[in-house]
């Protein structure tokens, strides 16, 4: 299926979290430093499992890689104003969830160009905003949410404490139960020895 003597014609099979597989060109894959480090020299025997990411995300990431195959070597991030129409469309057609998944996948695959463009895009989303607006963009919990979360955590801690106390109580009981035969044994032995002693003395 795959060959270490990679050329742009070589196709690799990629496996997504759904277990689906699809083709990606060697040239596109080589933009991923993770791929280069893991498979470039040894080749892959069968589909390459990138199973932390779904098919749609991986396809989007490799769509970008396929497109930028012929671009000059990466030399730092481009200013967003210098992005091509294709690049802009690529970013604009993603919803927020897909965008986040693409960043995470691109980060894992270590595709420097795409990760940088995505990060710069987020930085631009924050530009010129005030505190409240920024909180919305980066989805920070509000004071009420934090309070609610703290209450939940306190409840959890209280429940955990109760469980721990119960467990300790049970352990104590078990210990007592376990100790009982030993005490009995000691007593029995003592009785036996006493009897023996008495009988010996009587003799």
């Amino acid at each position: 299926m795959t060959s270490p003597a990679s050329s742009s014609e070589v196709k690799y099979l990629i496996e997504s979290s759904e277990g689906n597989t699809f083709d990606v060109s060697g040239a596109a894959l080589r933009q991923s430093n993770t791929f280069n480090a893991m498979f470039l020299n040894i080749g892959a025997d069968g589909p390459i499992p990138f199973t932390d990411y779904n098919e749609a995300t991986l396809k989007k990431v490799f769509e970008y890689c396929e497109h930028s195959v012929n671009e000059e070597n990466y030399s730092g991030p481009k200013h967003q104003d210098d992005l091509s129409k294709w690049d802009l469309n690529f970013f604009n057609e993603m919803d927020q969830k897909m965008f986040i998944d693409v960043i995470n996948a691109s980060n894992f695959l270590d595709i420097e160009r795409l990760t940088s463009y995505c990060c710069e895009r987020i930085a631009r989303m924050l530009r010129g905003k005030n505190t409240q607006e920024m909180i919305k963009v980066i989805t920070l919990p509000t004071a009420e949410e934090l309070e609610a979360k703290q209450k939940v955590e306190e409840k959890k801690a209280a429940a955990a404490k109760k469980v721990a106390e119960k467990a300790a109580e049970t352990a104590e009981k078990t210990e007592t139960l376990e100790e009982l035969p030993v005490q009995q044994l000691v007593q029995t032995t003592r009785n036996k020895l006493t009897r023996k002693y008495l009988s010996f003395s009587n003799e």
Binding site: L126, N130, M134
Partner: peptide, 26 residues
């Protein structure tokens, strides 16, 4: 978008692109 949930390397890159005055607001 949960900035605090991104992997550290991604957070680092995002922060690097933010100008000082915006970083202060953040």
């Amino acid at each position: 978008m949960k900035l605090l949930k991104f992997p550290s390397l991604v957070q680092q890159k995002i922060i690097k692109f933010i100008e000082f005055d915006n970083l202060l607001v953040l």
